[in-house]
Simulated scan of single mutants.
Amino acid sequence: MSTHERWTRLLDALGERGRIEVGEAAELLGVSPATVRRDLEELARQQLLTRTRGGAVLSGVSYDLPLRYKTARKADEKQRIARAAAALVPHGAVVGLNGGTTTSEVARELATRADLAEQVGSTALTIVTNAVNIANELAVRPHVKTVVTGGVARPHSYELTGPIATAVLQELSLDFAILGVNAVDPRFGAAAHDEGEASANRAMAERAGRVIVVADSTKLGQRAFARVCTVPKIHVLVTDHDAPDDLVEQLSGQGVDVRCV
C-alpha cells in the first residue's frame, strides 16, 4: 500500500469515527505502529487532523478533504462512471465540467476517446470548466477547445468560484453539464459542501441543455449544505452498482435516467 493510499484510508476512517488510535490504525492498514505515527504526524502538519496522545481526532477540514486525498476512494467505480458519462457526449458538443475526482476522470475519458482524438486539425469538443486541474490536462489536447471561467481558486477542489466564474458561465450556452457533487438526495437534490462551488455549479447547470450528474453510490441519499440543482433538473445520474434500489426508484420516479455501471 502506497503512502498516499494509507493517508486516504486514515482520513476516511477519521471521517467515519471522529477519532482513531495508533494500534487501531496499524491493524486497519496492516502496517507497524511506527509507520502510523509518522503518517499521523505528517497529516497533522498539513492540518488535516489533530494529533492526540496515542492517536488522532477529526480536524475541522476533514468533511471536505483536498482533492488529492479523494482520488483513491472507490477508484474503480469512478472510472466506470466516467467512461459511461463520457460515452453520452457526441462529437462537436459543448460540455461544462466542474471540479472533483469523478469529473477529472470524465475529462480524461473525453480527451482520450478514439473517435474524438482522431479529429486532427479540428475541434472535436469544447470543454468549459472552472477546475484548473482539468484545464491543465486538456490544454495539451489539440482536438479539445478548453475554456476556463476564471474566478478564485479553492485549494480543496481546484475549482474557480465567485462572481467572475458565475458571470462567465451565465453568458455561455452548453449542450451538457457534467457535474460531480457531494450529495444527491431524492428531496433536496444535488448539493455541495461549499456554497461558492454550489453557486458556480448551479450556473453551469442552468446554462446546459442536459445535466448529467456523476456520483458514486456513497453520495446517494446524502445531504450537503448548498444545493446545486433540484432532482427534476437532473436528466441523467450515472452511479455504480451499489446504489440502493429504493433510492434509484425514488430518483427514477422523478424523471431521472439512473444508470448504474
Rank of each mutant, 00 (worst) to 15 (best):
H193K: 06
S217Y: 00
E171D: 14
A183E: 09
R207M: 09
S173V: 14
A243Y: 09
I178V: 15
A226F: 00
V238C: 03
V211A: 00
K233C: 01
E197P: 05
A208R: 04
R210Y: 01
S199T: 15
A183T: 12
E197C: 03
A208M: 06
A191G: 14
A192V: 06
G180Y: 02
L220G: 05
D175S: 08
R227L: 03
I178P: 08
N201L: 09
A205Q: 05
V228L: 02
H235F: 01
L174I: 14
A203I: 12
P244V: 04
V184N: 07
D245P: 05
A203H: 03
H193L: 13
D194Y: 09
L220F: 01
A215R: 02
K233E: 14
D240R: 05
A224F: 03
T239C: 04
F225M: 11
F225H: 10
V214I: 08
R210W: 01
F176P: 06
V211M: 01
K219N: 09
V231A: 04
Q222H: 09
A243H: 10
V184C: 07
L172S: 09
S199I: 05
A203M: 04
I234W: 00
N201T: 15
G180A: 14
L220P: 04
L220T: 11
L172I: 13
G221M: 04
V213S: 00
V181G: 11
A203F: 03
P186M: 11
T239E: 08
A183I: 13
F225G: 02
F188Q: 14
S217F: 00
D240W: 00
H235W: 10
V214M: 04
E197L: 05
P186L: 10
F225Q: 09
N182Y: 07
D245S: 12
M204R: 05
V181D: 11
N182T: 15
V181T: 15
N201W: 01
V214A: 11
R207C: 04
E171V: 06
T230A: 10
R187A: 13
R223Y: 01
D242Y: 05
